[in-house]
Write a protein that binds this DNA or RNA. Structure first.
Length: 192
DNA sequence: CCCTGATTCGC
DNA sequence: GCGAATCAGG
């Protein structure tokens, strides 16, 4: 794979959004995170900071990158528009709702979320506890080693994945493994 | 150990 | 220019 215009563009975009090099590499495909980082540096956009530079000791006297040969064929005069958020489909008109009410759908509410059942009270407590510490990852941010336990209502903005370190070999973190994999013995409750 | 970006240097 | 290897952290 080579750095085509499109790929470079995506790279710039994602890097600007604060995505990690490895995430960008995965998205692009055919490149490693090293390649991404290398390209980032070559493009001269390694510094993500906006003015307030960290206390890094710069030994090299690097003036300012400026003269970029641009053959007036690119309708993109602006170097950096701004890290605008992704386009949202709908669901706006929510400037700020600090005291948002609990949205409890009627009938069969949420998708089968194994919790909410009668599992080990301890396990449940554990879950509700760690969910506060969850990293709240988005779907794209999940990796092989991040807990993929969904939290919240997918139809809402209050939806994210746990994201804590997974239990080796499992798709979930320790706490969520606890509620995900029931020995199916604690559920002899048949009559209802 | 998992991850992050930074740098070097042979290609 | 490219990116694997390596370095230096968290």
């Amino acid at each position: 794979m080579s750095w085509t215009d499109e790929r470079v563009e995506l790279l710039k975009k994602m890097w600007g959004e604060g995505q990690s090099a490895s995430q960008i590499a995965k998205e692009l495909g055919g490149v490693t995170r090293n390649a991404v980082i290398g390209k980032v540096h070559r493009l001269g956009l390694s510094n993500r900071s906006t003015g307030a530079a960290p206390a890094k000791a710069e030994a090299k006297a690097k003036p300012v990158e400026a003269a970029r040969p641009q053959p007036a064929a690119k309708p993109k005069p602006e170097p950096k528009p701004e890290p605008a958020p992704e386009a949202k489909p709908a669901a706006e008109a929510r400037p700020s709702l600090p005291a948002r009410k609990q949205i409890i759908p009627a009938g069969q509410p949420l998708p089968p979320q194994p919790s909410a059942n009668e599992i080990s009270p301890e396990a449940l407590a554990k879950v509700s506890e760690i969910e506060k510490k969850a990293k709240k990852l988005t779907l794209m941010e999940l990796t092989e080693r991040t807990c993929k336990w969904p939290v919240g209502d997918p139809a809402t903005e209050d939806f994210w994945f746990c994201g804590l370190p997974v239990q080796p070999g499992k798709p979930y973190c320790e706490a969520h493994v606890g509620v995900a994999f029931q020995p199916m013995s604690a559920r002899r409750d048949r009559r209802r």
